[in-house]
Design a protein around this nucleic acid. Structure first.
Lengths: 114, 114
DNA sequence: CTCACGGCTATACATTTTGATAGTACGGGT
DNA sequence: ACCCGTACTATCAAAATGTATAGCCGTGAG
């Protein structure tokens, strides 16, 4: 008994986490940045189908959530670099786990016979 | 070099995984079912704010993706039980990881001073 | 003068997801 | 005849998310 409150807290934790890394692009962007610092244009090319509008939005959200760092170089033409923060780096465990699960899932689906 | 194709494949893996467990409710529902078999009404009560419509939809999707099992007992009043399949069970690693990360993230946000 | 570069931003629109509200089906109890 | 409980289902509306298309900024090359 008495685990209700804990359960609820855990649930909120997960929900909160999902608000930060949920959505179609967030984790995919993070995965690219986990490979190293990238510029806007590089990300744009690396993400087939994303519009600059979306990319900007997602990056700004990630930035304000403290997951990525945005560095502007006052040059012309402009140069902006994006990199993961320490917290962003700690997401590697999740993306790895997710990828591992995704692989296993695909295997299963392939040989499925429930 | 030559890692482009692999990267792309990994990315698709993650995206595919997100299609199955993405969204506002899926993982939260799974978390409840990972605690044990539950009935529709129980889930409804356990998920504050979800509408029966949403709950039904999400459960059906999870079912058709092979993550949960739906068992109907031909009684009146009706009784339907939901439980995780073996694949669903394998998601525990992810929900745990996510919760762990969420906790750490909250800590960070709390004491933030970038 | 004009155009290109890089990183956006503006505007308008389409699609997808989520929500509120109410109703259905079924047999059993009163 | 009427209501109850259980698990939905239908209809409509709103909100979140995504897309298409075009343009801005300043400077240096042509």
């Amino acid at each position: 008994m008495g685990t209700r409150i804990d359960d609820l807290a855990e649930e909120c934790t997960v929900e909160a986490a999902l608000e930060v890394i949920g959505g179609k692009w967030k984790l995919v962007i993070l995965r690219h940045l986990l490979e190293g610092t990238k510029r806007f244009g590089e990300l744009d090319k690396a993400l087939p189908g994303i519009t600059p509008r979306m990319l900007t939005r997602q990056l700004r959200e990630l930035e304000s959530d403290g997951l990525v760092l945005r560095t502007v170089y006052p040059q012309v033409p402009p140069k902006v670099e994006y990199s993961v923060t320490e917290i962003g780096e700690s997401l590697r465990a999740i993306t790895d786990q997710l990828e591992q699960w995704g692989r296993a899932y695909r295997e299963r689906e392939h040989t499925r016979r429930w």
